[in-house]
Design a binder for these strands. Sequence first.
DNA 1: ATCATGTATTTTGTATACAAATAGAAAGTA
DNA 2: TACTTTCTATTTGTATACAAAATACATGAT
Lengths: 217, 217
Amino acid sequence: MVSSLEIENRSLHDQVVSKVRDLIIEGILEPGSRIDEADLIQKLGVSRTPFREALRTLAAEGLVIVRPSRGSTVRKLTTEDVFSMLEVLGHLEQLAGELACQRASDQDIAELVDLHNRMMTRYAARDRMPYYKMNQEFHSRLTALSQNQPLQEMQANLQARLKRIRYIGNEKPEYWAGAVADHEAMVAALKERDGPRLGQAMATHIKNTWERVKDSL
Amino acid sequence: MVSSLEIENRSLHDQVVSKVRDLIIEGILEPGSRIDEADLIQKLGVSRTPFREALRTLAAEGLVIVRPSRGSTVRKLTTEDVFSMLEVLGHLEQLAGELACQRASDQDIAELVDLHNRMMTRYAARDRMPYYKMNQEFHSRLTALSQNQPLQEMQANLQARLKRIRYIGNEKPEYWAGAVADHEAMVAALKERDGPRLGQAMATHIKNTWERVKDSL
DNA sequence: ATCATGTATTTTGTATACAAATAGAAAGTA
DNA sequence: TACTTTCTATTTGTATACAAAATACATGAT
């Protein structure tokens, strides 16, 4: 009898990829900075071969830039990059919202509403970090309800790449309040399974996100 | 004086990636089949290290599956994969169409209309392969007019992965005629810069693509 | 001082060697 | 015969060594 069917196959490659990805997303490796191979393989305790394979994966994900013969750097997003990515993300989440209304079970929706309510509790207490994390999860899980795997993957990729930038968006109290209002509208539409309205609400939410972050870039 | 600023930096990695990608897209490496490392590195004349790095890139693009300790295979798309990917592609091209109407220059549009006209000449002569290639180019170039880089990348990725499948869609004469009608509608909207209508036309076109290919899967 | 040129050092890229894991074949057992 | 079990051959994964390129530095000319 096997206890965990979940954790199977965490290859070294996957481990290195997710560790380095985290270092980038958390900002420990700064955008634009050189990736010091010698230093990192030492810290991670792996050799160059798997590390370099991991860099290729991260480059394909858009987190790392590999310039031939001159090493790798953490990809730095321009203002235009962020705008473009949010434009696409908003549109993808619009689709996700519409599909979720068609395909999610009542229980799926109830669980998401519950997550939303817990988020609102955090907002009431102005616990910024827990709210932020729940927010990421809310978007991921709503997208998952679309039952569309490629859509989920693309949403996850964009969300990861924009993670640090979006944290900025809740800095000003009035911005945070705006994001909360967006979420209320989204959840109201979701409860009624009004796909077009939820789609619109999600697209609007991402458009507003741009308004909330653009001046900090 | 330098004559080509374009071709710079075709690293070995990039070359191997595009060669293997082509082998997969052309169907020379069959979906589901094992990728014989020894055989391919011999044919490509490279060693295992750069070849395996290329596999990681292709895996991140979704063309290859790497199962730890049991090698790589060409990713085989399920019917559901194709449906999901077309669902997303249609939605992305809808966005691309809307943005193109807002952002493209008159000349950009004229050039695309010209490509369309050349396509129609091919259709009149029932030259299937040239039509097919021009069709791929039409979708790529229309997407490029969105001036949104991540959108282009995602469209290109989905289009590449679906390339072989979509070729099927023009097999029946009435299906081909349907695709041509879709394109006429798209070009009409583009000429008038009617973004919402073009977006709708593109989304519809991809939905119809699904109807045209689904029974062959 | 500035710039160019040449040299040393470091970093990156690729091949290969070795270790580990897997799949396949052969032999044994029920 | 079906089912293990063991052994072997092959394939895969990782480390390392060597080659090639780029960068940093020093020297000398203008």
